[in-house]
Design a protein around this nucleic acid. Structure first.
Lengths: 205, 205
DNA sequence: GTCTATACGCTGATAGAC
DNA sequence: GTCTATCAGCGTATAGAC
């Protein structure tokens, strides 16, 4: 009798991601994770050892696949307009559908990011370098202005992840749920045209 | 004998802002705050009652003055270019000089923002409405394109606060400290020109 | 008004039964 | 392999000395 490992472990991982994402490492408790997983709390310790080991497992699981959208869209084979549109849409969809994963990452960085330091200095840094090449190619083709790749990416990450991490602020200001089409439109408007109407003036006058 | 209230209370507030900002509400401990304030932990409880009361006091203290920069720069008396430049510079300076205050706010929102719900639905919402009028005036003058005010503000807040809240990620990717001039340049580039070079093409061809 | 000593609940972790 | 019962330590809060 009893719930077998194959069922228990993924269930714990899923609930842990949700609870760690909502409350952070310190704010989450093992009893809460166990209760949400419908398991005795000792089982969670049996499968993962310590709270921190569970946290690391959940975090690694979250990071894998974190960069897939960028690789898919920010490629020289696409036009800048097409690539940026696709990437922003994908990042915003992630913020909408996996808000807890985004919050988990935000909590970890706010705490200092010790557990993801290696990931940030190796995988993510190389990732940004690679995207920088694409951005340089797009600029060379005249599809975008020349940009500072890391700072450009910081802006995109900030704007898109904001909709997952700061959701309570957004719904409070809007007095209702976020309209992701408007969010997409605003971000793309900034990336593709800026807020200066000078181009329109130049063509209409 | 002993440290008087006039010295102790502001010192506790200051250290509490730093520690709550770094670790969040759950991650911070009263002993840590007391030790950082060089006071017996009982004194902190004597002056503020409970941990949550101290937290609320620190949070309110942080929120006052949070919106002053916007009122100063996002005004119809300025040009859009001048106003946006000043506002972005001010917000980035705040992220650099008061990172702990920014992180405190981020932690609070990540946790659901219960303690700032009234502030968000009254003060901040009215604030955005007011800015919306300025943005509409700027658009009417042809200084910016028409924008969706709240979503436009979300983008600005996201991009500027990112440099305070996600600092570990930034330094890891850059392999060094952030260059605030480049950050300013990137954000202003997006706001004022976008990344599309079409305007330049239109004028040079 | 300021500080020392202490109570007590909650949490992470484990020993050992089934 | 799964789960029940229990422990040890930390963290908030307070009673009471100075």
């Amino acid at each position: 009798m009893g719930i077998p490992r194959e069922i228990a472990v993924p269930r714990i991982m899923s609930e842990a991601e949700r609870i760690f994402g909502r409350h952070g490492f310190a704010g989450a408790s093992m009893v809460e994770i166990a209760r949400a997983s419908q398991l005795p709390k000792a089982n969670v310790h049996y499968y993962f050892g310590t709270k921190e080991a569970l946290y690391r497992a959940v975090l690694e699981n979250t990071l894998s696949g974190w960069l897939a959208d960028a690789r898919h869209w920010l490629s020289p084979h696409r036009t800048a307009s097409e690539g940026l549109r696709g990437y922003i849409a994908a990042k915003l969809a992630f913020s909408r559908d996996h808000a807890d994963a985004s919050k988990l990452f935000a909590h970890e960085i706010l705490r200092g990011g010790e557990h993801v330091h290696t990931y940030l200095t190796t995988t993510l840094r190389m990732h940004v370098d690679l995207i920088g090449e694409t951005l340089a190619i797009w600029a060379g083709r005249g599809e975008i202005r020349a940009v500072d790749p890391p700072y450009f990416m910081f802006s995109i990450w900030a704007m898109t992840q904001f909709y997952a991490d700061m959701n309570p602020q957004i719904t409070a200001v809007l007095n209702g749920e976020v309209d992701f089409d408007r969010a997409t439109g605003t971000i793309l408007g900034l990336l593709l045209h800026g807020e200066s109407p000078e181009r329109l003036d130049a063509t209409s006058k």
